[in-house]
């Protein structure tokens, strides 16, 4: 147990928080534990979770991406237009993934080739991608997304299981494997921990950082396509502020904003905690504006838990170093 806590402390605390959340909200209203409600929570977690998974890799490598919300809108409207035009859902998906990878790569190249600070570079593309979404649609939502597409990305393929959840799980597993069990993933952690040491160990830092932005934005593209399936329309105004929710999911799950530390499992749990809280506050009948306050508190408390865990686990020796 002790060992488990030392290696997976953040995931465990997120898990404990989720259990606590379930106990409390079920105590308030037993409907919280109903299968419908749980499905609701997980479905809501899908969008932020997919984006959060992508951004987790970026943050681990020492970057940040503020452009994911705008990229979500752009991807959604382009894919919506193709789906409306009758393109097969599989090709729609592939197109979306390619768009995501390309938008992410632009961010990555701005950071690596032009040496821009990630915050500024992605703030710039945040505005550009939003503008592209408006220009592409002339600010009119793309409506009439066909049923086949909507079923493909969000249909109930099994009782209580929608394909979007499958997409969420599969993407989470793939990124987890990439980060944990490939050279690229090992390099992501090393670059985020100490870029210079990584470079002097022969790591191609520029390549790693560019690719992690690209991979991260694929998560956003998947989120865009899932949301498109849920809503049935590609709206160029969608996704505003989503970047903060995605970063919050990662932060709650223990990803260090300083880089070098974080896990996909943590982010998935963070996303579930995040959406469970939203649903719970609605179930409990709390005024909708309190949700913002509660969400903020969760972010701050979970960050403080990390500070506490760091002090406890490393002790005064690490403090001095």
């Amino acid at each position: 147990m002790n060992k488990l806590f030392s290696t997976h402390g953040r995931e465990l605390s997120a898990l404990i928080a989720i259990i606590l959340m379930f106990v409390i909200f079920t105590g308030i209203d037993s409907i919280y534990m109903s299968p419908d409600n749980i499905r609701d929570i997980i479905e809501q977690a899908t969008i932020y979770g997919l984006m959060g998974i992508g951004i987790t890799g970026i943050i681990i490598a020492g970057g940040i991406d503020l452009g994911v919300g705008s990229a979500l809108a752009f991807t959604a409207v382009v894919v919506a237009r193709q789906a409306v035009n009758g393109v097969h859902p599989v090709y729609c998906m592939l197109l979306g993934i390619v768009i995501g990878a390309a938008l992410g790569m632009v961010n990555g190249l701005l950071v690596t080739k032009f040496k821009l600070q990630p915050f500024i570079a992605t703030m710039g593309t945040m505005s550009i991608y939003r503008g592209m979404a408006y220009l592409y649609t002339e600010a009119i939502p793309v409506i009439g997304v066909p049923r086949e597409y909507r079923f493909f990305v969000d249909g109930e393929i099994l009782p209580y299981v929608r394909s979007s959840i499958l997409i969420f799980v599969i993407f989470a597993v793939i990124v987890h494997i990439i980060l944990r069990y490939t050279c690229f993933g090992n390099h992501v952690y090393a670059v985020g921990g100490n870029e210079e040491a990584a470079r002097l160990s022969g790591v191609r830092v520029g390549y790693v950082r560019t690719m992690v932005y690209s991979l991260g934005m694929v998560g956003t593209a998947l989120a865009a396509m899932v949301q498109l399936g849920k809503l049935g329309a590609g709206d160029p105004t969608t996704g505003q502020g989503y970047e903060l929710n995605a970063i919050a999911a990662a932060a709650i799950g223990g990803t260090s904003m300083a880089g070098g530390r974080g896990t996909i499992l943590g982010t998935v749990l963070g996303a579930i905690l995040f959406s469970g809280l939203k649903v719970g506050l609605i179930v409990a009948g709390v005024d909708i504006f309190w949700q913002y306050v509660a969400t903020g508190l969760v972010i701050i408390v979970s960050a403080y838990v990390e500070v506490l865990q760091n002090t406890l686990s490393s002790g005064p020796a690490a403090k001095r170093a």
């Binding site: 050279c183 090393a190 921990g193 160990s201």
Partner: peptide, 26 residues
């Protein structure tokens, strides 16, 4: 010389990761 976030095992493997691959996986 080393990354502060990594364990000894990861730091020691950092410059020779390819050796620990089985297929595509480390």
């Amino acid at each position: 010389g080393f990354a502060a976030n990594l364990s000894n095992s990861d730091n020691i493997a950092l410059a020779s990761l390819r050796k620990f691959r089985k297929g595509p996986f480390v």
